[in-house]
């Protein structure tokens, strides 16, 4: 299986050294501290079976295996990032909408800054629910739109594509509705807007503007922000949901 979660064509901005210098090794706002917080809330037992969906270079995968004592596996579409992650645990190439796992075989799925990159979010969440055991945990951290659904999404004007993570951000109400449709019950939620603001500030201090950053990491490509330069309109959240035990 070689299809990807990221639907843009090369170059993959997450593979760039500049992106990593600014986002940190975890390649997302909040970093590993947010992962630690989420795992502590779930109280996973030692040996828990966990999927790090969109594992990137494997920072969370390594933590899950080496510190949290989980039997974790990573999945990502990028061969470059998977080559790094492979040093930290077993990895697979695949897509969120078609997880290569049997029904009910995982205790938790870690979905960090990934849902916003999936083209079919409902399918991805249904897949997460399918592979989880009843009562299993789905941990999501991701961007969301603060403006309402009546507001048009950021324009996908060239050279920026329409599939970056900020372009995939949705209002929280929509995220919550998708979870419900997938049979997932919210058990914890908090906004982490400061995390994404600090990241945006780091980018501005380094590159002078968000637009300059997008251009540097993915000129004309599928950059994370895709030219969306209004950070006040996006936030970040941590959400933990459980699979309905009756399903």
């Amino acid at each position: 299986m070689t299809v990807g979660i990221l639907h843009g064509s090369a170059p993959r901005p997450y593979e760039s050294g500049h992106m990593r210098r600014l986002l940190g090794p975890a390649l997302r706002p909040g970093g590993l501290a947010l992962t630690r917080q989420a795992l502590a809330l779930c109280r996973l037992p030692g040996g828990a079976r966990v999927l790090d969906l969109g594992c990137g270079p494997g920072v969370s995968l390594g933590y899950l295996r080496q510190t949290a004592g989980c039997r974790a596996v990573g999945l990502d579409p990028s061969p470059v990032l998977l080559a790094e992650a492979a040093g930290l645990g077993p990895v697979l190439t695949g897509r969120a909408e078609a997880l290569p796992f049997a029904d009910g075989c995982l205790d938790a799925v870690l979905c960090e800054c990934v849902l916003s990159l999936t083209r079919d979010k409902d399918a991805a969440l249904l897949e997460c629910a399918r592979v989880l055991t009843p009562g299993g945990w789905l941990i999501i951290s991701d961007v969301y739109r603060k403006d309402g659904p009546e507001t048009a999404a950021p324009p996908a004007s060239p050279p920026y594509p329409a599939d970056g993570c900020l372009r995939g951000a949705e209002p929280l109400e929509e995220v919550f509705a998708r979870l419900t449709r997938a049979g997932l019950c919210r058990s914890f939620f908090e906004t982490r807007d400061k995390d994404i603001k600090e990241l945006a500030a780091r980018i501005v201090l380094s590159d002078g503007s968000l637009e300059a950053f997008w251009d540097s990491v993915s000129p004309g490509g599928s950059a994370c922000g895709g030219g969306y330069s209004a950070p006040g309109r996006v936030g970040y959240y941590l959400l933990i949901a459980q699979k309905d035990a009756a399903r």
Binding site: K197, A200, A201, V204, L205, G208, P231, G232
Partner: peptide, 14 residues
Amino acid sequence: LGKMLRVEKLLEDK
């Protein structure tokens, strides 16, 4: 007046 001002505005949500 450049980067630092832009960061201030960003953190203040202006």
